[in-house]
Simulated assay, not measured.
Amino acid sequence: MKIWTVANQKGGVGKTTTAVALGGLLAQKGKRVLLVDTDPHASLTYYFGIDSETLEYTAFDLFTDTGAVGVDEVRQAICKTAIDGISVLPSSMALATLDRKLGARSGMGLVLKRALNLLKHDFDYVLIDVPPVLGVLMVNALAACRRVLIPVQTEFLALKGLERMMRTMSLIQKSQNQEHRYTIIPTMYDKRTRASLLAYDKLRETYREKVWPGMIPVDTKFRDASTAQQPPSYYAPTARGVHAYNALLTYLIQQDRQVEQLR
């Protein structure tokens, strides 16, 4: 089971779209996909028409259960979606209280990793959508994975958010003695604007081979797909944004194969 975390400390850069788009493409390849929503805003959860505030169990319960969380407890928090092959571990607004209530509790940084380890035979891929805030949820998402996908809007304010994200990853890697492979994904690229062109060039100049050589364009089909509660590749398979995410997925899979061959 491969676990990819989609993270950035700036909001509005395409994290949820990236998780859903890649998840949809993987499901179309016959993979069993779990999308994990750790953002209290629950955008990924609502994307699939799931109202987490009406559910008996959500991701929040994994963090607050005082007993040993077993595989049955984790499975009962998972919701199937209308898309064959895609399941969701839903978020809830209560996750916003974790740092204040339980952030200092021993072992809180590894809750998600332990829970997902129990599901290693249930899914082929797990994609974790992370809130743009450094806290216990981001620490959990980074601890649970070996690959981090960092969507970055191609504009200069987003580059500043990327700098914060890189510092956060460095701190967490040192504290956990765990190195992450990461890929920076240029998003919301508009070739008609000078700002996008300059920001993309700056990304490539600063982060070099860590930047995926493609880019995700601005595409209104992403918004339409979310309204239809379908991954973009199901709603608009020929859209240019879908072609871009398909190229990204091919790139990520090839990279994973190269790493596995070196082991």
Rank of each mutant, 00 (worst) to 15 (best):
D201H: 10
K191F: 06
R204W: 00
L162M: 07
Q173K: 10
K191D: 10
Y182S: 03
S170A: 14
K202T: 11
S175Q: 14
R164S: 12
L203G: 00
L203M: 08
Y182K: 03
K160D: 11
E179F: 06
R194I: 12
K174D: 13
S196M: 05
A199S: 15
L159G: 06
L171M: 14
Q176A: 13
N177R: 13
I184E: 01
M188F: 13
A195C: 04
K202E: 13
R181N: 08
N177M: 12
Y182C: 00
K191W: 04
T187Q: 01
P186F: 00
K202C: 06
L159K: 06
T183N: 04
T187K: 02
E205H: 09
G161H: 07
R167E: 14
T168Y: 04
Q176H: 09
Y189Q: 00
M169P: 02
L197Y: 00
T193V: 05
Y189G: 01
T206A: 11
D190L: 04
R204Q: 14
R181A: 08
N177E: 14
K160F: 10
M188R: 10
T206E: 13
I172R: 00
T206I: 11
T193F: 06
L198E: 15
D201A: 14
T206S: 09
S175F: 01
E179R: 12
M169H: 02
T187D: 06
R167N: 12
E163V: 13
I185V: 13
S196A: 10
L197N: 04
Q176Y: 12
R181E: 14
L157T: 13
L157A: 10
S170P: 01
E179T: 13
R181W: 10
R164K: 15
Y200E: 09
R164V: 05
T183E: 06
T183W: 07
L171V: 15
E205S: 10
T168A: 15
L162C: 03
Y189A: 02
T206C: 06
Y189D: 03
R164L: 14
Q178K: 15
N177H: 14
K202H: 11
K174G: 06
M166N: 06
R204V: 08
Y200T: 03
R194V: 10
H180Q: 08
T168M: 11
M165V: 07
T183P: 05
M166D: 04
T193P: 04
K202Y: 08
K160L: 12
K191H: 11
A158V: 03
Y182F: 15
L171Y: 12
T187M: 02
N177Y: 11
A195W: 08
T183G: 03
D201W: 02
Q173D: 11
M166T: 06
R194E: 11
R204P: 00
P186S: 04
T193S: 11
L159I: 10
K160S: 10
T187G: 04
Q176M: 15
K174F: 04
N177D: 12
H180C: 04
L159R: 03
I172H: 02
G161E: 04
K174I: 07
T187W: 01
R181M: 08
Q176V: 09
G161V: 08
D201Q: 15
L203I: 02
L197R: 10
P186E: 00
S196I: 05
A195Y: 08
K174E: 15
L197D: 07
K174Y: 06
R194Q: 13
Q176P: 03
T206Y: 07
D201Y: 05
R192P: 02
R164W: 07
K191Y: 01
Q176K: 12
M166E: 05
